[in-house]
Design a protein around this nucleic acid. Structure first.
Lengths: 93, 93
DNA sequence: GGGTATTTGTGCGTATGTATG
DNA sequence: ACATACATACGCACAAATACC
């Protein structure tokens, strides 16, 4: 499970597709990256909380955490327990 | 998951069953309601603090908070941050 | 005003069980 | 058997509101 790649065809405003072949957690990664790219989530600022993303996308907490763990693994965000999930500046990676 | 119903078979002095099918947070709701009904927790007075319930029942804080949020949603209690969880008088609902 | 204690709110981490494809 | 996804439950830390001294 360490060689997942971000599916194409998902933008910052995409709805998640629970029926298609792409895992929801990967779709969410694509959406969040798109939003970071677009500037919705500024550098060194936290993305919405896991609970917030659960609310917005109507998915499970564990699924969101799988996404954030993946994004941290890729260096896109930095997870700070008790604080939030922060956007890593592009220059810092 | 907005249609949870209080399981039967739990009274004011019931022990919580971590093995059975009923969620602990719902069992706790049944116990607290039973105590309110019985008069252990008077109207317009706070039930034991979250920390106190954690201690008494040996469960996690998040589990207790799920219960109190549920009871507030049902109108049985009113949560006041920094003060406590107050019993709503029957006449007020 | 400041300091401390209490209580609830809000974060993430982790583990386990269940269901589905 | 495996990955995905959801629900539950526990742990831990810090913030905010309230109250008291």
């Amino acid at each position: 499970m360490g060689e997942a790649s971000i599916p194409s065809g998902y933008s910052a405003d995409s709805e998640l597709d629970h029926e298609g072949p792409d895992p929801v957690w990967l779709q969410l990664a694509a959406v969040l990256l798109s939003r970071i790219e677009r500037g919705d989530y500024p550098e060194n600022r936290p993305i919405p909380s896991i609970a917030g993303l659960v609310q917005e996308f109507g998915i499970a907490r564990g699924t969101v955490q799988k996404t954030t763990a993946f994004l941290e693994d890729r260096g896109h965000v930095r997870i700070v327990p008790g604080k939030g999930v922060f956007v890593v500046p592009r220059g810092d990676r």
